[in-house]
């Protein structure tokens, strides 16, 4: 990549929000590129079946939906660049998107970098990623057939993941820092009546132990402050999401959880900088909502460029 390139619109992120923004911007005749660090499609590529995206009465595999969105945007002129964004700077009349490989200059930025699973932030977690530490039970569950695994968290996602593991593993221990689940009643009841699932309440993970693979978790009871170990071969971390907005911290005010604040037209406090999808404060965190945000952001970007 050359050190500085010029574009009309740079969309940061290649998930449903970014791809829809790219589709609309390209169809409006704007020169738009999407910058993505990994694979195009966003978080949905991990979803085996998306059943709540309108137009697919039998559901559609998340990876297929991502691929279709990508091809549709590309057909209308969206181009893709691989790169990891590290910052956005606002200069007089233009913006600079800094990436791991150089700088891209443009008039409008649409930030659509989504969110990712919150990490535990304990020793061993990063080292044993892909060796027993996982953030996606529906992706990796079948690789733990007949084994004992832990699920960390107590919300809907954690309990859904625990229930999805029942088909594969021998035993599931749900580790939750509170003494009751936050998950909805129906999920709670299903989990509590499932013989393979047991619970460790008021407990947090302080260490993931193992050499070439996960062997044990070091745990702490937050009430008694007692520490103990639990033998598991896998740990599925489901303690919420965090928005991928670190690169915007010096450009924009973020809310305390790191989300971007926008108005209903996806405008931020910085003229010409728009945000769409899961990175927005109060986002519904749904594929269709992200796509809607992307469309709105691109239409607002078009108005901005025309000076309307």
């Amino acid at each position: 990549m050359s050190s500085i390139s010029e574009h009309e619109v740079i969309i940061v992120g290649g998930g449903p929000a970014g791809l829809t923004a790219g589709l609309y911007a390209s169809r409006a005749g704007l020169k738009a590129v999407a910058l993505e660090k990994g694979l195009i499609g966003g978080q949905i590529i991990n979803a085996p079946l998306v059943e709540n995206y309108p137009g697919f009465p039998h559901g559609i595999a998340g990876s297929d939906l991502g691929d279709l969105m990508c091809r549709q945007a590309e057909k209308h002129g969206l181009r893709f660049i691989t790169g990891d964004v590290v910052g956005v700077e606002v200069a007089d009349g233009y913006k600079v998107v800094r990436t791991s490989d150089g700088e891209l200059r443009c008039k409008v930025v649409i930030a659509a970098t989504g969110s990712e699973r919150q990490k535990l932030g304990v020793p061993g977690e990063q080292l044993l990623l892909g060796r027993g530490v996982s953030y996606c039970a529906t992706c990796d569950g079948p690789l733990f057939r007949g084994e004992t695994v832990a699920v960390v968290g107590g919300g809907d996602v954690a309990i859904t993941e625990a229930l999805s593991l029942v088909a594969f593993v021998n035993k599931i221990v749900v580790i939750h820092r509170r003494d009751e689940l936050r998950a909805s009643a129906i999920l709670r009841e299903r989990a509590q009546s499932e013989p393979k699932i047991s619970f460790l309440w008021s407990t947090v993970v302080s260490d993931v132990l193992g050499d070439d693979k996960v062997r044990e978790l070091s745990l702490r009871d937050v009430k008694t402050v007692r520490s103990f170990n639990l033998e598991v071969s896998g740990v599925f971390v489901c303690i919420g999401h965090r928005p991928n907005t670190d690169y915007l911290a010096h450009t924009l005010p973020l809310d305390p959880a790191g989300y971007v604040i926008t108005d209903v037209q996806m405008r931020t406090d910085v003229p010409g900088l728009f945000a769409a999808g899961d990175i927005r404060q109060n986002s519904a965190r749904q594929v269709v909502a992200a796509a809607g945000d992307g469309a709105t952001a691109a239409l607002s970007a078009e108005k901005f460029l025309k000076g309307i």
Partner: peptide, 14 residues
């Protein structure tokens, strides 16, 4: 890889 793995399908052409 496996047939049920979405990201596997995405990375295969790469």
């Amino acid at each position: 890889w496996a047939t049920w793995c979405g990201p596997c399908r995405m990375i295969a052409p790469v």
